[in-house]
Write a protein that binds this DNA or RNA. Sequence first.
DNA 1: TTCAAAAACTGACCACGGTCATAATCTGTC
DNA 2: GACAGATTATGACCGTGGTCAGTTTTTGAA
Lengths: 207, 207
Amino acid sequence: MTKVTKDELGKRERNKLDKRERIRDAAWSLFTRQGFEATTTKQVAQEAGVAKGTLFLYAKDKPDLLFLVFHDRLATAVDEGFASMPGRAPLIDQLMHLFRRIFEMYAEHPEVASAFVSALPGAEGPNAMAVHGLTLAFVTRVGGLITEAQQRGDVSDEVPPQLAGANIFALYFGALLGWLNGMASLEVALENMLRPSLELQIRGFRP
Amino acid sequence: MTKVTKDELGKRERNKLDKRERIRDAAWSLFTRQGFEATTTKQVAQEAGVAKGTLFLYAKDKPDLLFLVFHDRLATAVDEGFASMPGRAPLIDQLMHLFRRIFEMYAEHPEVASAFVSALPGAEGPNAMAVHGLTLAFVTRVGGLITEAQQRGDVSDEVPPQLAGANIFALYFGALLGWLNGMASLEVALENMLRPSLELQIRGFRP
DNA sequence: TTCAAAAACTGACCACGGTCATAATCTGTC
DNA sequence: GACAGATTATGACCGTGGTCAGTTTTTGAA
């Protein structure tokens, strides 16, 4: 069984991937230039060089285009955040490092980010599912940080790592919503909202 | 300066209140019968006995109708929850009592509730603002519970009550989203998701 | 190469949410 | 009661998101 690389695919699969990319890039370009609401699906189709109906073969609806464009950006931010994370720093510093990287990604285009985050609850469609998968993996990885902290002796063994990961995610998501809708500055959101919130949660992790 | 009761109002104000109620009731009736998506604004207008344009004098857009119908229901659930709350019970029991009352309210019509909660982030319009006000008041009252627990000696004085209230709200909101979209049972959502989450947060409140 | 079945694409079409110029109604004043 | 000004109500109208019957492209088998 040989590894399948991009140019070994059949014409069908290659065309699909190409179109997917073109749609993603067209959507991103228009959303950042005009905003999400002001962009019509017709425009996205035109800029991507496909018919309007084709758009909805690659995204269930207009919000699903947001998930298409943010999936890779989010995945990259998360991966970079974990990759550059200090291994032996206190848990709060690790978390803040991670979330700072993610917040910075959103801060590049706050209006589009706000539309994305607001559309997340209850979203359906293939790209929404992909983002949901990212989220689950993320919560699991945060849970892994808790486990590591337990091995270091920084966190009590009584704390269930996955539950702790889920709580931390809920607090992060709350801070994210508050930030993007209230439009505070990045630093204020991180240091005055998210950090105290996480610190109060982590108090309960102490052995 | 006499207290202004309903029938002392001018004809204008009375008509406005009447229409508002008719719109609220028509929307609620249709949403519960057909679901939010399946209900058209035209139907709501007809059932309320107003023109379609009039609808949008009382709600900024279709989601804002959800906020119109849920505002009173939510306020009632919250008030009842606080009113019937055991005064000297442990904090976790007080919170669970409160949230149980709220979850039960949502459980009466889970589909409509799901649309409501999903529409909350980033919502605009007069009714959305009213619900937002409810939320702020709610967080403050939860903060008050923390203060009371501190006076009882159950919670450390180092815990900022308002921050604690905000954290608890974020965890509640996360559990609510997970419940309404994952469609677990009410009991599972309350006992297996929300309670452990709150308990893990409250660990950090101990003196 | 040929062909038939499957998969992907298309754009005319439609129902809906939301707007706005106009009409109707209310209010306080004389 | 009569009026002017202010507020509220109306529904024809419009642009949009989303659909789907019909068309084109790809595939693998013969």
